[in-house]
């Protein structure tokens, strides 16, 4: 009996965590959702397409979110991946200070870092540019990406890359055929987290982008403030699609590559 209660209790908490996605979807496609109704009284399955046609700011926002998000993913991986390999494979006295530098952007209050970076970037002439926004978003994403990659690479106790090189593989071969497939899950995690964090940024994108990059997150803010919940929910659905489609593609490509390699070796 007690076990049953705990099971349904956990299920109920699960429902509470899943509720936000359901509410956003219902808000987007439901109509006549007034007091005292618990559910929308009418449905409009094409609501999101209609909103897409009516609202001319949606498509530019999708493009802005994607270009900044993908740029951030690229820059983050370029910096985080070698860093993670270095941290796992080499014992160094620098580890302490490197860790402080890695996690500092997470610990320093976001508002302080954002306003300070904005002031600095004005002088570096990066405010209002694509590169400026990507750099700032990368700064916020690096701690997550490095942590996920390090945790993943640290699982393998054996230095398989050294084994491969010992057997005559070149550095490039050992990286491409050993390290990369082994860090597949870490890469998927890092890319997922980076894209989520980058696309969710509101204040940093607004300030550093100087209004030139009106992303989905930026456009949603005044909609919620102004009580236009249905429009905000449509933005929400589009946001989820913009986030999940590239992530799904990336995972598919990486898994296929790894499978092909495994096949090749057999």
């Amino acid at each position: 009996m007690k076990k049953q209660i705990s099971t349904s209790g956990l299920g109920l908490i699960g429902c509470l965590f899943g509720l936000p996605a359901v509410v956003i979807l219902l808000l987007a496609i439901g109509r006549h959702w007034y007091v005292p109704y618990l559910l929308p009284q009418r449905w409009d399955w094409l609501a999101i397409f209609k909103f897409w046609q009516q609202d001319s700011t949606l498509w530019p926002a999708v493009k802005a979110s994607l270009s900044l998000g993908l740029g951030t993913v690229g820059l983050t991986l370029l910096i985080a991946y070698p860093m993670a390999i270095a941290l796992v494979k080499y014992q160094t006295a620098l580890k302490g200070i490197l860790n402080v530098l890695i996690y500092a952007p997470l610990i320093i209050p976001g508002i302080a870092l954002t306003t300070s970076l904005d002031l600095t970037f004005i002088q570096l002439h990066l405010t209002g540019t694509w590169l400026g926004v990507v750099v700032v978003q990368t700064l916020f994403c690096l701690p997550y990406a490095i942590k996920l990659l390090v945790d993943n690479l640290a699982i393998y106790q054996v230095d398989y890359e050294a084994v491969a090189q010992n057997l005559g593989a070149s550095r490039w071969q050992s990286f491409w055929q050993i390290t990369l497939p082994l860090s597949r899950d870490g890469l998927i995690g890092a890319v997922t987290m980076t894209l989520i964090v980058a696309m969710s940024q509101y204040l940093t994108t607004l300030l550093i982008g100087d209004g030139n990059y009106l992303t989905l997150a930026i456009n949603m803010f005044p909609l919620i403030q102004g009580g236009r919940y249905q429009a905000a929910a449509c933005y929400g659905v589009v946001f989820m699609a913009t986030l999940l489609i590239p992530l799904g593609l990336f995972e598919w490509v990486l898994k296929r590559k790894v499978r092909r390699l495994a096949h090749h070796e057999l």
Binding site: F17, S200, Y202, Y229
Partner: peptide, 15 residues
């Protein structure tokens, strides 16, 4: 299902 609020930005949670 705990992944859902993780993926949603804070402004969605506010909505």
């Amino acid at each position: 299902i705990a992944n859902v609020p993780l993926v949603l930005p804070h402004i969605f949670m506010v909505l």
